[in-house]
Every structure is written in C-alpha cells, then in structure tokens.
Amino acid sequence: MEQRDKLFTEEQYIKQLTQYTARIEKLNCMIEQLEKDGDEISPDFYGRLFDCRVNTIVTMYSMGKDLESIKSDFILTIKVFEKCWTPYGYYVHMLWLLSIAIMLDYEDDIVQKLCDMIENNGVKDHIYDILLNYRFSSHNEISKCVFDDIPYHAILDVTNLVQQDKILAVQRLKKYLAKEWYRGHSDCAWYNDHKYGIIHDGYWSFESGALVKVLGLDDSILKGQPYYPYDMVHWADNQK
C-alpha cells in the first residue's frame, strides 16, 4: 500500500483512522440511545458524526487504500450528510463528495442524494452545476458564479477556456493547483495541520480531478502535481 499523501507516516495514518473509527462507533451508540429514548437529535450532533466519516474517507485515500474500499464508507457518509447539510458550513465537503462520486462512477441514486440536497436548498454554484449536468441532463442549470469565491473563482476561468482551447484550460487548472488552491483554504481548520503531527487527513483538490473527467481534459501535465488525485481520475480506465 503506497501512500498518496506523504506528509504523515503510515503509523500516524493508521492511528488516526483507528481514532476516527472509535469516535464513529461512540457517536452511533449515542444516537441509537437518543432514538430509543425518543429524544430529538440535533443536526449539530449529526455534524460531528459526518465530520468523522468524511475525514475517514480522505484519510483512507491519503494512506493509499484501494479506491473500491472507500465506497461503503462513502454511502454511510451520505446518509449522515443528509441530516446535517447546510450550504453555508459544508460547501467544501459537498464539493469533495460530489467530485469523488463523479470520479469513481458511483451509481445515479447515490449522486442523486447529493443533487437533491443542493437543489432543495436552492444553491447556485457553477462547479456543482457542471458536475451535476454531467450526470443528470434534467439538472440543466449552469450558474455563472461560485458559492465560495476564494479559491474557486479560478474554476470559472477553466470552464471558460474549455470553449476556446482545452490545452489552455488544463494549464489554468495547473496554475490553480500550484498557486491558488491550498493558499485559498488558509481559513480552514485543516490548513497546515501536517506541521503539528497530531492530525492530518490529507490535502486534495478533488474538484480538479472531477472537472478533468467531466470536461474531457488531458491531465498528463497534472500527474504528480500536489493536491491532484490522479489515480482517482483514472479509476475507470483501470476497470476496463
């Protein structure tokens, strides 16, 4: 098992995954008890469980787990996400999950759950729309803006350039990955967390991979680029 994100050691990732698993089991037990007692469960409580689940997925990818092994965790994560989703606090997480589902060709009913959350909340976002239109022709809306401008405004440049020249589009995406993506998340809790040696899930621009697949770009120049999930983009190629 070769690590994809080498900013943590294998031992650190294994320890972290064990901690996430224990926390998920504890939270699930607490939820079951609350349900049994007939008590109301707040979205914040489900939010804590969701954080553990989505962080588990990213950690598994970073430590080099087979992509097929992620699917069961992904489905369970979506079930929890439906109970705590708000477009304001979970924009990046929705982008991660939607992108992973696109790259790994998950079934329409799985992606539809994410689509329903977005549409039912009336979220207008260019990246969401590009990805959803790839899977569902019925979505057919393309917003001209992104919900979170920094760093995602750069994606508008990429999708605009596709209409003119796909080589220019992928070059713009490379600049986004090299100079804008990580720095643009400086306000996120996970920014620079690898420096402290306590917890580090991994740094991945999953939306970049999904856009390459959806827009039909040649990502040869992106192979080995930090933050780019190259093998996830090409997962379907290896299934043939």
Rank of each mutant, 00 (worst) to 15 (best):
A236T: 12
G184W: 10
I75Y: 04
V162Q: 03
N192H: 01
E207Q: 11
T77A: 03
S72F: 04
M30A: 09
P226M: 07
S186T: 14
L215A: 12
Y196H: 15
K195E: 15
V58Q: 04
T18P: 00
L215N: 12
Q3I: 05
H194G: 01
Y152R: 11
K15Y: 15
E40G: 00
C52I: 00
D193G: 05
T21F: 14
S186R: 12
R48I: 00
Y227S: 05
E10F: 15
I130G: 04
V214D: 01
D201W: 04
Q163T: 15
F136Q: 02
I198C: 00
D193Y: 06
G224H: 13
T59Q: 07
D73F: 11
Y88S: 12
T21I: 10
I100K: 02
V123N: 05
I127N: 10
D193A: 07
D219C: 07
I150C: 11
V80E: 06
F74A: 02
E207V: 07
P43D: 06
D129N: 14
K213D: 05
P229D: 04
F50L: 14
E119Y: 04
M60I: 06
R53F: 06
Y61Q: 04
I167H: 14
I31G: 02
M117K: 07
E141M: 12
A210I: 02
R48E: 14
S99V: 01
A189Q: 11
I127G: 09
L17P: 01
G209A: 10
Q3N: 05
V146Y: 01
Q239D: 06
I31H: 06
A189P: 11
D125I: 09
K36Y: 13
K71A: 03
N121K: 15
L168F: 14
Y128L: 13
C145Y: 09
K175W: 05
M1F: 12
D73Q: 11
L34F: 08
A101S: 07
E40P: 00
S72Y: 07
S186Q: 13
M232N: 00
C52Y: 10
I24F: 08
C115F: 05
H93R: 11
Q19T: 14
P151S: 14
H234P: 07
I198W: 00
S186C: 14
K83F: 08
D116A: 13
Y230P: 00
E68Y: 07
Y128A: 09
L7I: 01
V58K: 02
P229F: 02
L217Q: 04
V170L: 09
V233K: 01
E25S: 09
V212Q: 03
G38F: 05
Y90E: 08
N160L: 13
L131G: 02
V233N: 02
I110F: 03
Y13V: 03
A210K: 02
T159Y: 13
T159S: 15
N140K: 09
I150M: 11
Y46D: 06
D187L: 13
L114D: 05
A101I: 00
K124W: 07
Q16G: 05
D165Y: 12
E32M: 12
D73G: 09
S138G: 10
